[in-house]
């Protein structure tokens, strides 16, 4: 922790997040994100090896529902909100590769 963020890392992250950044934005984000990470250095000095992480504030378990069918949405109500449709399906430009 604490290593200053590199511009290439920011570019890589933008790609992962499906955002395209201009050169100026790259520059700015590298600096601004670096500041936040630098602030986060106050955590890095802590020895928390034996501390369990908390992802949920409360420890609820086994929240389940019965396997009972409920009404689905009306198809046209949903498709009418879509940017592009065809044959009752959501249409997208060509997909470049198989799903991972």
């Amino acid at each position: 922790m604490g290593s200053p963020l590199r511009r290439e890392e920011v570019a890589h992250v933008a790609k992962l997040a499906r955002l395209s950044l201009s050169e100026d934005e790259l520059e700015l984000f590298t600096e601004q994100l670096g500041q936040v990470l630098e602030h986060a250095n106050d955590m890095s000095s802590l020895d928390l090896k034996d501390v369990e992480p908390t992802a949920h504030p409360f420890g609820l378990i086994n929240v389940v529902r019965d396997d009972v069918v409920r009404a689905s949405l009306e198809r046209n109500a949903v498709l009418s909100q879509a940017p592009d449709t065809q044959d009752d399906r959501f249409a997208v430009p060509r997909i470049m590769g198989e799903a991972p």
Partner: peptide, 29 residues
């Protein structure tokens, strides 16, 4: 965008433990 970038970075391979993982432990504290 800034927050999406920050979050994507914090979860990405190689940084997860140092940032997100550590933050979850601070949450426990």
């Amino acid at each position: 965008k800034r927050r999406i970038m920050l979050g994507t970075y914090a979860l990405s391979a190689g940084y997860f433990d140092a940032y997100y993982g550590q933050a979850l432990k601070v949450r426990t504290q």
